[in-house]
Structure formats: structure tokens, C-alpha cells
Amino acid sequence: MPPATRAERFRQLTRPARVAGIVGWASFLAAALATMLCFAFVDPQALGVGDPPSWWGPRMRMYAIGFFFFWFVGAMAAGLAWLLAHPTRRR
């Protein structure tokens, strides 16, 4: 089997679906861990002083929002890592 060329390898790795899959999955795992750690120590019902913001809700909603927040941040980090790990494309 002839080896894949550099350009071909780059094309394969940059396929949007593959990148989205890897970034999404890695950040999902990280978000699951972060959510667990975070809400083990922080009770969303007992936060801060004064009135909570208007969108603040019951615990289950805050857990879910927290999870999606961590997923988003994790995806940003994973996506950035992927971007920086690859050389700039030259024409």
C-alpha cells in the first residue's frame, strides 16, 4: 500500500466531520468530569450574596447549563489545540 501523501493526510485530518467528531467527543469527556467536580463543591442554590440573576433556576437546570458551558469551553480548547497543532496551510 503506498503511503498517503502529506497533503492527503492533511486533507483527511481536516475533514469537517472528523474534526467535529474528535473535538466534540474529547470536550464531552472533559465537560462530564468538570461538571462533576464543579457541582460537588458548588451548590447552585447557595451561591453568592444578594439576588441571583433572573435566568437562574433550580439545581437541575443549573447543572445542565453548567454542563453545556463546560462542553463549550472544552470544545474551544480542543478546537484551538487542533488548529495550533497543524502547520499553516501553504499554497
Binding site: 500500500m1 503511503p3 492527503e8 483527511q12
Partner: peptide, 9 residues
């Protein structure tokens, strides 16, 4: 004439 082969089959 190297044929590009997908990295992932």
C-alpha cells in the same frame, strides 16, 4: 504515479 490512499480506511 503514487495513488493517494486515505489515511483512514
Amino acid at each position: 504515479t503514487t495513488v493517494p490512499v486515505p489515511l483512514y480506511e
